[in-house]
Design a binder for these strands. Sequence first.
DNA 1: CGCATTCATTGATTTGGGTCAAAAAAACGG
DNA 2: CCGTTTTTTTGACCCAAATCAATGAATGCG
Lengths: 244, 244
Amino acid sequence: MLQLHRLNNPSNVIDMNQCSACLIRNRAICADLDASELDALNKIGHQQQIERGRSLMWEGEDAHLVANVIDGVMKLTSSLEDGREQIVGLVYPSDFIGRPYGTTSAQTVTAITDTKLCVFPRSAFDDFAKSHPRLEHKLLDKTLSELDRARQWMLLLGRKSASEKIASFLLEMSERLAEKGCTDIPARSSFELPFGRQQVADILGLTIETVSRQFTRLKKQGLIDLPDRRTVVILDREALAVEA
Amino acid sequence: MLQLHRLNNPSNVIDMNQCSACLIRNRAICADLDASELDALNKIGHQQQIERGRSLMWEGEDAHLVANVIDGVMKLTSSLEDGREQIVGLVYPSDFIGRPYGTTSAQTVTAITDTKLCVFPRSAFDDFAKSHPRLEHKLLDKTLSELDRARQWMLLLGRKSASEKIASFLLEMSERLAEKGCTDIPARSSFELPFGRQQVADILGLTIETVSRQFTRLKKQGLIDLPDRRTVVILDREALAVEA
DNA sequence: CGCATTCATTGATTTGGGTCAAAAAAACGG
DNA sequence: CCGTTTTTTTGACCCAAATCAATGAATGCG
């Protein structure tokens, strides 16, 4: 069933256009490359659109590609045989996807919103990376940051209560979405979640019902407002931080 | 209070002796270095003993060093203000510790057993790494593996029940401790945990009582035996795998 | 060796969050 | 615009694991 979502539709494939105009160029792994290097990298990759809900790679399967997110949000998920799912990572513009120097993907990578990517065949990318230390350096730096973030999330998953999880989540989202420019809303106190309630539950290791109840509780207590189901307005950041 | 554990006791500092005799040399980040490179790395680091319970760096504090574990087991922990603690990583011989190109440590690093380390001042290590792509490459590879492992652990923390957590833990330990040669016991079905019950609880996001109850349950059901409080014998790996 | 301390087990009780079920509200499609 | 589908909210109930409280076993030390 998941197989149906495979992306081998050539109509989605677009020639890689000028990196120099790329909005996330200075934050992505290609940031430290010079013009000629960028050109070489250009030749091995291409831009690709991927629509909301579609997956780019699957847990346990061969991953023959790596990618950079240009625009949109993706999720990394691990799941159990019975369908329980945990979102183990979120991928924002300028973030890197995939496992260089590995064969199988440890997680499923799925678009949460329509997403624009720079895609590279893994083997070609591996070769390029091995011979371009500055790129590997950037990749290492990003990976180390991701690892720290993942470990911070482990504390939340293992030790925080539902209300603490929700509060931490809202605060992190308000920062992340602001910093990454995923929305046009200037005020970081108001932001649009790219996730539905079930996805929030899958991020926090909760059920959808618990997420919903916590949201309405915070709303009733006046710490947040929820104008529509995707928008969150933080009314009392202080109080929220105390809960986190 | 934690400050008392700081390692500035010069008696613990030993000159780095010959890497060529190092037991973990071929698995650690120094694996791909040639003799002269190894010699240069040698000059910036030194070996150090650290005893069980002592910490090498603290969450949120400046980390002016990075290290390689030669022998022993260490833990990475994150904690909340009220003392709740989560073990977010385990560090075995040949594993790397610390955050190159970063300033503050995101976790506390503490010895679980008496540990032997190769310690490097961070700034000197950073410089060395930047000019030695093969070392950075190795470091990247290790970091990517750690990230995959951390994310797999997030699934356990967020979605597994206590009995599933315990079963997964025992199976992983039997593999990890065998593969890393942390014990002399040849049979991977019998191994000695380097952790007490509280630490197992901190790894799994449970309480010590729940861990204890699950252990005794598995013993009563004949899936494992517990000859003494640190030793685990897996009697029915199949059944344990079904629980995991 | 015996006392003290730490660590682990076991039992009784509580509770946070899960499950099950239904209603309400949005979003979608013709 | 209306019926269908999906998503979210709300309520009633339950249970796994936490908490609280002892007891029992190891370990360490004078």
